[in-house]
Design a protein around this nucleic acid. Sequence first.
DNA 1: GCCCATTACTTGACACCTCAAGTATCTCCG
DNA 2: CGGAGATACTTGAGGTGTCAAGTAATGGGC
Lengths: 170, 170
Amino acid sequence: MARSKTALKPVEAAVDAETRLHDDHHASLRLWLRLLACTSQIESRIRQRLQATFDTTLPRFDLMAQLERAPEGLKMSELSQRLMVTGGNITGITDGLEKEGLVAREVDAADRRVYRVKLTAEGGRQFRQMAAEHERWIIDLFTALSPRQKKQLMELLGELKQQLMTSKGE
Amino acid sequence: MARSKTALKPVEAAVDAETRLHDDHHASLRLWLRLLACTSQIESRIRQRLQATFDTTLPRFDLMAQLERAPEGLKMSELSQRLMVTGGNITGITDGLEKEGLVAREVDAADRRVYRVKLTAEGGRQFRQMAAEHERWIIDLFTALSPRQKKQLMELLGELKQQLMTSKGE
DNA sequence: GCCCATTACTTGACACCTCAAGTATCTCCG
DNA sequence: CGGAGATACTTGAGGTGTCAAGTAATGGGC
């Protein structure tokens, strides 16, 4: 889970999992640890800023992001698929957002097992503000890379992702 | 954390956060979502296998990994830094491992606030087995990339990481 | 037309994780 | 020496995640 969060000391004192493994072999393992370190670091900062700036959390933001591009609402099960988390989890996050009036559950006339979850007007307003800020943060975090490097990274990760998707059942 | 976990359907049906955003602009945002998708997917598989094969969890594994390369033991605070999680968290994970006899807290004679946490003999045995298997999983997950691609990816992530480390305080 | 398997969601137990507050110990400075 | 402040760890509340079991509604086959 999320795993690995907070900060490292100044650069020299930085001691993370990756730095700790320098055998020369183990190329894949070292690559994995670096990948994880980057992702965790970025995710951690986004979480912190969401909390500090908007007093919300990443899962809530992610859920609202899905709803924002689905004006007719989404079923809980669709949210579960798109956020790649289990259904039980969606129940809890939706409960929270509903309590704050940012989303609403509507019963589906055609299938009474189903809830259609929608962003409320207020939820939409708040989300659009957060999304704009969120993108600025991301852009900022990736300034280290030139457009060309971003493209390269995008492609390499594309290959990796492709394999991960297809080697599902193995 | 961790966020995003489980599986996607067969390739065509795959609907993840990234696929859902194709505006052409937003290069950084799309890169971030792809990075996150890859990391989450890999992490999820490692977790599943650790659970299925060794009935343990990733945080426990990570903690033991740190101890394995520190025969004289580590302080709780050192574990906290290295695993990049808060101290309160280390207490809980250590409690669990201690209860199962895989690690031991030893009081430090010089400073009685401190615990030195060590792997027990049994803990070391179990960890070495898991580590070997774990590396095989990682290697397997990265077979999509040639050695040359791995090197490239490693370098690109290195640049990214470098900036993330230095732009700490802002 | 009924029944059973499937699907949609909720609930509860457990593991992680954070933060903030609490306790114990150390260290330094006057 | 003695007390203030820093450091090491624990605890507790709250959010996120999993899995498995429970409830409710649907729908297809006989």
